[in-house]
Computed example of a mutant assay.
Amino acid sequence: MVHVLSLSSVILSFFTAVAGIFYYNHSLSRSTNCRDSVFSSAFGASWRAWIQSPCIEQHNDWNLYQHLGGYGPWVEKTAEDDEIQGNDVPDRIPLNGSLSFLNNWTYITSNPERDFEQLTTTGPYAGTHQAFETGLRFAAHYKHLIPSDANTKFWASDSKRVIETAQHFASGLFGSDWEKVGKAALEIIPETFDRRADTLTPGDTCLRYLEDEDRGHDNGVKMLTLFQQAYIPAIAERLLVEEGNRELEGFTNWEIFSMQEMCGFETTVRGSSPWCDVFTREDWKNFEYGRDLVHYYRGGPGNPYAGAMGWLWLNATANLLREGPKAGSMFFSL
């Protein structure tokens, strides 16, 4: 066992679980006014309103944002993003139908190298604001659990967006001077392979998981790729033929899937996205299932290494509970 006990204080407690739910399933309402009314007070909102706003635009019990795969408040770069960026403003071929917005659409960033895989800072769903707001809500509910003279230690993996999320969260929970006055201390855990079991990111350090081409990390994307063939060709046919865009050379399955991803990405940056209207409810249900396949076979029950990697947190939690109150009153890992 390699330094597993040193992670006993890196406990993903109930509080952290709620924070994770918030970031990966946060509400994406197109109505900023509605959202402002729900989240106007850290003390007034219920748990239900905190985790998921009831003001999300719905039609006949259909809520698109519940089917986007749980994107968080940062923009994840995919291999196909550059291809979409190349379609920024078509110079030669005017597009028709649901793709006609592309005739005047601008890409979500003019500086991908700076903005991709970072915390969003613009729009009603800015990750910086949401992290700070989450800290305020934790303070409203749980600050009484933290001794006034305590120096609370919390952890973040060595990723710029994760570190910034932790810092904004701490500012909301402990106050903007948390670091200066010693209310809390942030410890950054490297994501390097040499950390092995002493890590917050075992998906980067488990050698067999990384090297197993059949059942390891890449199995999720393999399963998604197989499923894409079951639903995406019909979408391409609709966009190209039925909507009068035959002059385009065609779309690959991954290009269509990236368009669906762009709905969530652009919404987090701008508050809404015309990409969301390109696809039908059935398209979104298939997209959601595709995302489920990725996570099920990449790090969930469908992956034989998931239990071993998840054991790190289970072991840390068990050790902390055995240690009792002397271990401390609150622990965070972001």
Rank of each mutant, 00 (worst) to 15 (best):
E76G: 10
W62K: 03
D91G: 11
A327W: 02
H295F: 12
D204I: 00
A234V: 07
L64M: 10
P54I: 08
R291I: 13
S100D: 00
S333T: 12
C34H: 06
H144V: 08
A140D: 08
L314P: 03
H217W: 09
Q229Y: 02
A126V: 09
L68R: 00
W313P: 07
G328Y: 00
E323S: 13
V2H: 09
A170P: 00
H59T: 15
R215S: 02
V75K: 04
T205C: 08
T205A: 06
E288L: 08
E80V: 14
F14N: 13
E249Q: 15
T192F: 05
G44V: 07
L334D: 00
N319C: 01
S40L: 07
D158I: 00
L186V: 05
F227S: 05
V162W: 04
H217S: 03
T199L: 05
P304N: 01
D198C: 01
H59C: 12
E211V: 03
R161V: 02
A19L: 15
F43W: 10
G135K: 10
D198W: 01
T252C: 04
S37L: 13
L207F: 01
L68Y: 11
F15T: 09
Y125P: 04
V38R: 02
P202V: 03
L314K: 14
V294E: 10
Y24Q: 11
R208I: 04
A126K: 09
S9Q: 13
S148K: 15
G20Q: 10
L210K: 07
G244P: 03
T109E: 08
W105P: 05
T252N: 01
F257I: 06
Y125S: 07
T122L: 11
F22H: 13
H144E: 10
V89Q: 14
A327M: 05
Q260F: 05
A166D: 06
S258N: 11
V278L: 02
P124D: 12
D115P: 01
H144R: 13
H217L: 11
G123N: 09
G300K: 05
N96A: 10
S176W: 01
A45R: 14
I21C: 04
M309P: 06
Y107F: 15
F279I: 03
L12P: 02
L102P: 06
K180N: 07
S98R: 15
R48I: 04
L207A: 02
T192E: 11
